[in-house]
Write a protein that binds this DNA or RNA. Structure first.
Lengths: 152, 152
DNA sequence: ATTTTATTTATAATAATTATAACCTAATTT
DNA sequence: AAATTAGGTTATAATTATTATAAATAAAAT
């Protein structure tokens, strides 16, 4: 954990931003809840536990900054809230998501499944791909087995 | 055009909704501007030309309804506004988008490029895919050639 | 030590969306 | 045909997410 904070600190410094206490508290929350997909409000409430004097606007600004530096990714599952997701160390691309329409759970996929598709887009549409967003909507494993059980 | 209106009318009736004049005006705007990715506000302004007495809330409700019936798809390119996009007739899946980070243009791809990827997700993650959202962010053909010209 | 600059807080403003109440209209029942 | 009912609409208010602003603070530079 400390190691990753250090790295993020360096990334900020390299663009002449500093890792203020508020920013550090925000990053720590993101690191601790790496599996989740927190909204700005969620992050704010969690950061408040560490640094009660922080303001919501600061959290927004920090998330925006981290987003610009590609330390976090800003996603939108279509529910009207932006969610913020730490980019895995060394990951060049945005990871993918499986959103369950039954239980609302969100699973992440790190594998890069789009290499072939990107090649096709590049070639056939002349479009130079820089990043992507891929989300599948469907039914997760748990809900499938639950559904089967229910009919037995 | 009339043919497609008829089809949509039937789709609504089959769920015991009716195609009111306001709904029809909204659908007509979507049909006329099929290439675009209009926000609710955009649609509202355009519908107002046909039916000046319509309210914004009605447009929202109509778009929401059309969305539920899978007649339109609701997308979010991350700029804080939901955009509404007519689903092509007979299309089972949501189409993909190429968003240019230079000029902001949005191009559509109808081809289903994800068949293989969906098979993998189905098999390796046990996730039953119902729909997907795929957006590429990058530089479109026009902006690439413009960039080349600029350095000449 | 003083000036400059970046950052934050608190608050207000804006923008998108949704909820509510009153009204209207078309269909259904009497 | 008159009365009733339910769905749909308008106008307006409320809510929610996000961004902007001004004053206060802290850190860095001179």
């Amino acid at each position: 954990m400390e190691h990753r904070i250090e790295r993020i600190k360096k990334q900020l410094h390299s663009q002449s931003y500093k890792l203020t206490p508020q920013r550090e508290a925000t990053v720590r929350v993101l690191l601790e809840r790496e599996e989740d997909h927190l909204s700005a409000e969620d992050v704010y409430l969690l950061v408040k536990e560490k640094a009660p004097e922080i303001g919501l606007a600061t959290v927004y600004r920090t998330l925006e900054l981290l987003s610009e530096l590609k330390i976090v990714d800003k996603i939108n599952f279509g529910d009207g809230v932006s969610r913020y997701d730490l980019r895995k160390e060394g990951a060049k691309h945005f990871h993918h998501h499986l959103v369950c329409i039954e239980c609302g759970s969100v699973e992440e996929i790190e594998n890069d499944l789009l290499e072939d598709v990107e090649r096709i887009v590049q070639k056939d549409w002349g479009f130079q791909v820089k990043d992507h967003r891929l989300t599948f909507h469907g039914v997760c494993k748990q809900c499938q087995t639950a559904a089967v059980k229910a009919t037995e």
